[in-house]
């Protein structure tokens, strides 16, 4: 039923929606690709950040535009998801990062024959040269 409504959409609304959808899909895919192909955990944690910010942002804006055009009234309740995701994504990445850092520190302390490493903040070089894949 809404296929007919789609065909009546003017070009100036369907073109930006399509562009935003394509961009958002590409960005979301690139973020997941980074999660899959980067070699170390501390690099992989940067991959999903672009999915969350730009990918989700583009698709949410496209959804807002499309529904506003279809219903011929401003539909902005996607702002709720945007707000929620933007508020919670930093917390999630910080918690996961801290958990990973503490686990690595604990693993390094548990290994015999290495020094405690108090003078260094985090096991930067050790973790990566150890091949913590």
């Amino acid at each position: 039923m809404h296929e007919q409504a789609w065909e009546q959409l003017p070009l100036w609304i369907s073109l930006p929606v399509s562009l935003l959808l394509v961009l958002g899909g590409c960005i979301a895919l690139i973020g997941c690709l980074g999660l899959l192909r980067l070699p170390h955990f501390y690099q992989r944690i940067h991959g999903p950040a672009i999915t969350i910010t730009l990918g989700a942002g583009c698709i949410l804006i496209a959804s807002m535009l499309l529904f506003s055009a279809l219903e011929t009234r401003p539909v902005v309740h996607e702002l709720l998801i945007t707000l929620f995701v933007l508020l919670t994504a930093p917390m999630v990445s910080m918690l996961v990062m801290r958990a990973a850092v503490y686990r690595d520190l604990r693993k390094r302390r548990a290994r015999p024959g290495t020094k405690d490493g108090e003078d260094e903040v985090y096991p930067v070089t050790q973790t990566q040269s150890r091949g913590d894949r």
Partner: peptide
Amino acid sequence: PSAQDRVLALDTLWMCCMLLCLLLGMRFG
């Protein structure tokens, strides 16, 4: 390989599923 990798992957999976839901909503109006 590590547990934190799996947690990160699960979080991204949630996010992708949310995006897919939004896209389905647009598809079916």
